[in-house]
Write a protein that binds this DNA or RNA. Structure first.
Lengths: 186, 186
DNA sequence: CATGGTTGTTTGTGATCACATTTTTACGTC
DNA sequence: GACGTAAAAATGTGATCACAAACAACCATG
C-alpha cells in the first residue's frame, strides 16, 4: 500500500465486501500498532515516512532483532537453518523476477522463522509491529541497489548460525537491518 | 486491574455507561497492544503473568529504555532534571503513604518525562506498550521490599543526567529496570 | 480574479438488533 | 455422589441506522 493514502471506513468495508464494523475494528487495531495514522477528526491515512521515523524504526530493529537472534541461537538446529537457506534461495529468485511483494514477504519469513525459536512472543510481536510500520517504505526499498546486499547479509547470518557464533550472529543481523532500512533514509 | 480477570463487552459497556461499540473498540486496541488477551472464542481476559513473560518484558525495557535515555541526554536541561527530582520526591511520599496506584503512575511519569526528550515517538510508544503490559504485575510489585530501591536508582539516574555521563546513565536506567521487574519474577 | 460564506455531501461515532457460538446451569442416569 | 447431556443464558460478531462534525463544492460578493 502506498504511503500517504487516505482510507475511509465505508471504502474499506466495500472493498472487502463487509460492513463498517469489521473495517472499523481492523483500522483500530492497525492504528494501535502504528501502521495507520488517525487524524484528530478520525480520518485514517497511511503514515508518510520521513527520515527521522525511518531512522527510529531502523534503530528499533537493530536493538530488538540481534537479541531475538541471540536467544534463538541455542535452539537453531540444522533443519531450521536449511529451511532458512531455502527461503534465501527463493529471495534470490524474487529479486531476479522483480517481485517486490514476494521479496518483502520472504524477507520477513526468513527473519521470523529464526526469531520464532527465541521463545519470546512479546519481543517477536514488537518486532513484527516495527515491520508493519516500515512495510510501506520497504516497497520503496525494492528497486534500489541495496536489495542485493540482503542475500549476502543473509548468508553471513546462516554462517554464524551454523558456527554457533553468537557475536558474529548479532553483528550479521545488525548489518542486515542497517543495510535494509537505515541506508534508505539517507 | 487484577491479572486473570475476565471481561465482557456488555459488562465494560455497562460500567462506562456506553454501548457495546466503544467497548469493543477499546478492547480491540488494548489487545492489539498486548494489554489484554483474547481467547480463540473471543473472550477477553487480563493476561496472567508467568515468569517467562516477566523476564521478556524486563528484557525489552532493559533494551529500549537505556537507548531512549541516551538519546534524551543531550536535550536534558536542568529544568527537566529538577522536575524529575520533584517527581521522585513525590514517589518517596507515595511509598510512605502506601498508595500503590499513585506510585506506579509517578514512576512512569519519571521515566516518560525523560524519554519525551529523546524525540523518538515510535520508540517511546513501544516502551509505553511494555509498561501497559506489565502494569498489572507492577501492582504486585508494590508491597515488596524492592520498591525502596526505586528511589535509590532514580537518584543515580539524576546524578548521571547532571554529570552528562552517558554510560553511567545507561547503567543506572538498566539497574532501575532490572530491579523493578526482573527480581519480581524470581 | 480572489475570497468568504453557504449549502450539500461525505465520514466517523455511538447505538441497537439478529444470529451463531460458547459457556453455564440444571437435570437425569448410572 | 459423579458424570454426561440437554436446556438456557450469555457472549462476540456483523449489519444497519441516526446523527453530528468535517469536508468539498459552489456561488455570490468585493
Amino acid at each position: 500500500m502506498q504511503p500517504g493514502v487516505a482510507l475511509t471506513l465505508r471504502g474499506i468495508a466495500a472493498d472487502f465486501g463487509v460492513s463498517m464494523t469489521p473495517a472499523r475494528e481492523a483500522v483500530r487495531r492497525l492504528s494501535a500498532e502504528g501502521a495507520l495514522q488517525v487524524s484528530k477528526s478520525g480520518r485514517v491515512t497511511t503514515p508518510e515516512p520521513n527520515n527521522e521515523r525511518l531512522e527510529e524504526l531502523a534503530a528499533l530493529r537493530a536493538l530488538l532483532e540481534p537479541e531475538l537472534a541471540s536467544r534463538a541461537l541455542p535452539r537453531a538446529h540444522n533443519v531450521l537453518i536449511d529451511r532458512m537457506e531455502n527461503i534465501n534461495d527463493q529471495i534470490d529468485q524474487m529479486i531476479l523476477q522483480n517481485d517486490a511483494a514476494a521479496y518483502v514477504r520472504l524477507n520477513q519469513d526468513f527473519h521470523r522463522s529464526l526469531y520464532l525459536r527465541a521463545q519470546a512472543p512479546a519481543m517477536l510481536a514488537m518486532v513484527e509491529t516495527v515491520w508493519l510500520q516500515s512495510g510501506p517504505t520497504m516497497r520503496r526499498l525494492y528497486g534500489q541497489k541495496q536489495q542485493q546486499f540482503a542475500s549476502i547479509n543473509h548468508r553471513k547470518i546462516l554462517a554464524a548460525l551454523r558456527a554457533g557464533d553468537e557475536p558474529g550472529l548479532r553483528l550479521a543481523i545488525r548489518e542486515d537491518v542497517i543495510n535494509g532500512l537505515r541506508l534508505l533514509g539517507s
